[in-house]
Amino acid sequence: MAGQEQELGMPVRANRPGWQAVASLAGFAAAAGLVVGLAWDSARERIADNEARRVLVELSAVLPAALYDNEPHRDMIRLALPDDEPRQIWRARRAGKPVAAVLTSLAPDGYSGQIRLLVAVTIDGRILGVRVTSHSETPGIGDVIEADKSAWIGSFDGRSLGEPEESRWRLRKDGGDIDAITGATISSRAVVAATRRAMQYFRRHREDIFAIPAGSPAATSGD
């Protein structure tokens, strides 16, 4: 049984052409890629959910407790409207009336790929808080978009699409009114734009966002 192959295993085939070694390695590289791809495919959505939920807990701490009396983390919809970014949205209500929402926002244009955000906004369009849920920015340079690393992400608190003017919702060096993080212009620009898009989305779809029942087919049909 197990022992018989010991001499057979790994014979030294010194005279085999070199390309066979290369082909063998390439085959294993492809297999490795396949394994990771499959794992990523099955885990991707849950990882995004987990990360959003963790930050949501953090954000709920930012939302004034007196503001709402429901459980926003349960009052969630996924909304995929035509021509708009698909988003997850948590609703905060008081006595059944909409008071605030937390929206996901995706910045595709970070320094090293995607930056995912949560934007908490009151019903009248004022930002309660913005937090990064995941990113791959350079540690020590771009990672200052995290709330733990710098206060910059807090500079959105209290802003709305009128404050500053919508056309000035960009970095100063792009002709706007928002300060970039020194040395991390690209990361800052991506976060500012994704936050602005989330705000515009909220203004455009506010009625729908609060009208759709949680977990309804209408809310998830776009998944």
Binding site: L25, A31, A32, A39, A43, N50
Partner: peptide
Amino acid sequence: LIIAAFVTSVDLLFKA
């Protein structure tokens, strides 16, 4: 390569 692929996959699955 094989080990790295499985470790990365387990990392993802734990995270999920």
